[in-house]
Simulated assay, not measured.
Amino acid sequence: MEAAAAEGTTTIDPQLAARAERRDLLTLGIEEEYLLVDTVEPHGVETADAVLAEAPEELKGSVQHEYLRSQIEVASPPQLELSGLQRAMTTLRSGLADAAERAGSRLLAVGCGPAAGPDARLVDKPRYHEMRKRFGDLSPGQGLCGTHVHVSIPDEETGIRVLNHLRPWLPVLQAATANSPLFDGQDTGYASWRSMLWERWPTVGPTPYLLSYDHYSTLIEDLETSGAMLDEGMLYWYARLSARYPTVEIRMGDVTPTLDDAMLLAALTRGLVATLLNEVRDGVEAPDVPYPLLMAAHWRAAKDGLEGLGLDIASRRPRPAWDLLRQLVDYVRPELDRHGDAELVTVLFERLRARGTGAARQRALLERGIPVTGVVDWLARTTRGENLG
């Protein structure tokens, strides 16, 4: 869900921006949404206000409410080095997990509520009440939690062309983040059930093929006029331009259970944007992939995650999803090298390959006879950074 941007997300230090420009590198930042659950029962609890009050003072500029009272969101400061992003997010996750426990709850990095429980109420903000009034109850349960990655771009027109080039690759990244197979205590048959629930909002979906920044702006105005969104903050395309800062925002993924997975997503996203910027500068036109084919690819990603098939947009044929992710890593490797991320990405990729996605790891627990309450315990411990294999 879209909340007001946390100050730490995109407030770029001028010295950092200058350093990035001198080295022709891209900055990146990440936002993560979390579910708050009871310390005994596995369902969501409305402790967001109490968690915010308990958060350490130095973190409060990077922590904020989300749509429901059982959710909370963090946003990293922009970073140039992936190691800096990892340190910032480690501090945010562990500090917020501690605050949640002081507030009588637990912090879960999971796409939607795994266990049955009462639907959470809205955070008491006029914007959210207006959203509920206009759109009804499109976010059932205890909350939908995603990951958003911001990567810097030189200007808006270039950003539009990057958005066009991104379209075929985003289902692969979505599959890598799949982390919501359970909902209301049941296995949904999907690796990312959050994706299916999220698609009920009228502006959620793949980014359309855009002709220019003027075209992008006109579409936003038309969507507002139509009533399909209140304002630009409700533009829920899987990739978009930031409304306030010089970044593209990639936002189709579940929040991942471990920071390893989140850092892999962030590094691959930056590598991909940097690779596509080179294509834009070289005058390479983005393929105008038919919108229904993109919808099919995103559905496939939500259904199987990385453990089944993905849709190869180029051949229009299903392929093992792991092969598509490896193809993406190979494609962006020169930019991973240039940004200093290649070695860590190799380690994180192999770690993900060995462990599986969050969805696969949750299902593995169930197959061992561990109940949903045990899955929630595992998620809480993994979210705070305990090494659980």
Results as ranks from 00 to 15, higher is better:
V289F: 05
L336C: 08
P334L: 02
H339E: 03
G356H: 14
G358M: 13
I313Q: 00
L306H: 03
A286M: 06
R361Y: 08
D312R: 03
A301S: 02
A314L: 11
V375Q: 02
L306W: 08
G310S: 04
D330G: 15
T373M: 10
R363A: 05
T346R: 15
L324S: 02
Q327V: 11
E350G: 09
G358W: 08
G310Q: 01
I370G: 06
Q327E: 15
E307V: 09
P292R: 15
P320C: 04
V284P: 09
E350M: 08
G358S: 13
Y291S: 10
D337W: 08
P287A: 07
A342S: 13
A314M: 03
E367R: 14
R355C: 12
Q327M: 09
D337F: 12
P287M: 04
L309N: 06
H339C: 02
D341P: 10
R368N: 05
L336P: 05
Y331M: 10
E307L: 03
L294H: 11
A286G: 04
V289P: 03
V372H: 12
S315Q: 08
Y291T: 12
A354L: 11
W322E: 12
D282G: 12
R300W: 07
W299E: 02
R333Q: 04
G310H: 01
G340P: 06
